[in-house]
Nucleic acid binder design. Structure first.
Lengths: 337, 337
DNA sequence: TTGTATGCGTTATCAT
DNA sequence: ATGATAACGCATACAA
């Protein structure tokens, strides 16, 4: 006698036990179909006894819609993205959508991953990739399903974006520093192809106005270490800032530690410093970081609404671009003194 | 004329274009089936022209296996779990498995989520839930598919676990503190139902030996804030520790900040302090935290091997329990002086 | 090697 | 309200 593979319970099994037709079972589990309460009761009882669970796979074949959304993430090591993912998963589930998660390092992995996801007939893609290129946009647009991007400049007829107003926040950061008498401002940029970082830097420079001539720009790469290293190098060059805007909180924490350890400079006694994202670690006492809150909750909620719109468009491409204002969260790193 | 829903390209479309049968197309995309190279060539060309992508859904119906693994996460706000998830997603994908992600707050959500995942005929479940109860174990075991848990004590004939040696690490932590002349040790526990935390505490107490009588135990909840609050309260009670072991790094960071801010105590000048998990933030200069590294890479790799075994068992329950030694990472918080 | 035919477990349509 | 039946797109056993 060979191994007996345990065959999952099907609607036919339930039908047999309840003494009804298979279609009756289907109707018993359907919201829309009409069925006599008694029959329904009987069927649910039989289903419970057999531990029957409706199989969604055939429904996918018939409808062509899987109820699954491909979610493509890059750096989960940034708590901002980890938090956003957590929110996203919950919000999508509330709308009856499942998350098929993919992690991507480079464009190569992306193509590969999308290929696989398409095999599962995902209904849409949501990406929180910080970095976007033309090639990525093209690959995503070619899927011919709705794509929602966070804080990205990707464009395409199937691509929608939900972003915080990065440029405006940059202007606000500059105003804060100017108002408090900063003389030597520094901008710590994120990765070169991070569109959000570029916009934040543009706003900052614009907001500085006449003072932009004094601006020192550092190149980071969105990580704590890159912030620490960039600031350390700057200090070695003899630059002594009294105000800084960092493209994200991770780099801001690195900057704070470098300022303190390498030059004994403290935020905010000596340097006014702002970050972006409002990650939990920024609120930790050791950093007490002033930052911009993108409102993850609202960002995700909006993305889900855009997604729902796109899914209801019935196969026609939808492209929306929504901008949300970031909120300044003032903490000790700009308290002055 | 109504909206024309764009029907995805099927193997029949490709067959028509290539002038072959539908089964030939299926074979052209199969690793195992035999097909003439020329025919294969012709079919792949037609497929490329039509932008055909094999649909995996029907194969799921036939085989009963979806190639999808349900991954259940709790606190992604803990960077340790975020990092583990990132590793897990990559490792599973290398084995051709997709990740269906679910976030769970409580047992209620869990039941609900598992219900939904089962509808997609997931092949297995991987959980990184810090907190497990009998009810959770029962719900998972009832799925009748392989379940892999990290750092958990859940048991069941379908449940396997991969854990670091929490108890042994606790003993090591105690030895470190004893060797360096600590007189007033403190244990900061994680959430009550966190099995890993309980084991770490047991090991610590045992490792303290005769000194266990002096031990002060604090109750935390796995978060930075809970660590900060617990230590603050302790300081108010007049306890002045010179050595601490915290059940995880998040709480350790909170503890360090509270020690400094509320009592001017510094790690390691005044207090020797150890955490657990080796999250990136522990290495940040402001904390410089001595901790235990669970080896996320190896933990995840092992979990995937266990998973692969279980999947190959062909419907028979598999239950393995694997323990991996954690590695002490010494940094400034135990440097002394 | 290749084509034909069958079945996977549902939902939707139709007739009763 | 209910039952019979046809799809959905692919993989496979079988026939050629």
């Amino acid at each position: 006698m060979g191994v007996r593979e345990r065959r999952p319970v099907t609607s036919v099994d339930v039908a047999k036990r309840a003494g009804v037709s298979q279609s009756a079972v289907s109707r018993a589990f359907s919201r829309t179909a009409s069925i006599a309460p008694g029959t329904r009761e009987k069927i649910l009882k039989a289903a419970a006894e057999l531990d029957y669970r409706p199989n969604r796979i055939p429904a996918i074949m018939l409808s062509g819609r899987s109820g699954m959304v491909g979610v493509v993430v890059g750096g989960l090591s940034n708590p901002f993205y980890a938090g956003a993912l957590e929110h996203l998963v919950c919000s999508l589930r509330e709308r009856g959508l499942q998350v098929l998660l993919v992690h991507v390092d480079d464009a190569l992995t992306l193509d590969d991953a999308l290929e696989q996801l398409l095999g599962y007939r995902i209904d849409a893609v949501v990406t929180a990739l910080a970095i976007g290129s033309k090639a990525v946009a093209k690959a995503l647009d070619a899927l011919r399903i709705p794509v929602i991007c966070f804080n990205s400049r990707l464009t395409g007829q199937w691509i929608s974006t939900v972003s915080s107003n990065n440029r405006a926040a940059g202007v606000v950061a500059a105003r804060v520093l100017r108002e408090r008498g900063v003389m030597q401002p520094v901008w710590l940029a994120g990765a070169l192809r991070n569109a959000a970082s570029v916009a934040r830097g543009e706003g900052f420079r614009r907001g500085l106005g006449a003072m932009a001539g004094e601006l020192v720009s550092l190149q980071g790469a969105d990580t704590y270490e890159s912030g620490y290293d960039a600031v350390s190098a700057m200090l070695l060059r003899g630059v002594r800032p009294d105000g800084m805007f960092c493209s994200n909180d991770m780099m801001a924490c690195g900057a704070i530690d470098a300022l303190c350890e390498r030059a004994g400079l403290s935020c905010s006694r000596d340097v006014m410093l702002l970050g972006y994202d409002n990650i939990p670690q920024g609120a930790w006492r050791a950093y007490d970081l002033t930052t911009f809150d993108q409102g993850v909750g609202q960002l995700v909620k909006t993305a889900c609404e855009v997604l729902a719109n796109a899914l209801e468009a019935g196969g026609e491409p939808v492209s929306q671009n929504i901008v949300i204002e970031a909120r300044l969260v003032e903490r000790g790193s700009t308290a002055g003194g």
